[in-house]
């Protein structure tokens, strides 16, 4: 029973012709590729970085993001949990990341 292994046809590298037209992402509203804002990314990476099994609690988050208001941290947390990036663990103040892998 010979399996016929067909090599995949040569991949044609896709050129990037109109790079100049891409427009620059100027301004302070920088949005990284994953569709999250800077604040949301900061919150997410802090939660990801937490080694504790119960996750990072809101208090720690607040302490490490002193440039952000409690309301904006809450907002980011809400958004992230709505999107499924994080979830609450032992109580509503502890969060863990799903995409920690």
């Amino acid at each position: 029973n010979k399996s016929h292994n067909q090599p995949s046809a040569g991949r044609v590298p896709i050129g990037n012709p109109g790079m100049g037209e891409a427009g620059n992402f100027g301004g302070n509203n920088f949005m990284p590729a994953n569709g999250l804002t800077v604040a949301q990314n900061q919150v997410l990476s802090l939660i990801k970085a937490c080694p504790r099994p119960e996750g990072l609690n809101f208090h720690d988050l607040k302490n490490q993001l002193q440039h952000m208001t409690v309301a904006s941290i809450k907002q980011a947390v809400d958004f992230l949990s709505n999107e499924g990036h994080i979830y609450s663990t032992v109580d509503d103040d502890h969060f863990k990341s799903t995409d920690a892998e």
């Binding site: 499924g84 979830y87 663990t89 863990k96 995409d99």
Partner: peptide
Amino acid sequence: LVRIQRNKAAALLRLAARNV
């Protein structure tokens, strides 16, 4: 603990739904 598992499962489902 059940709650955590459930939250995690729900979060993963949401994430999966976003990625469809």
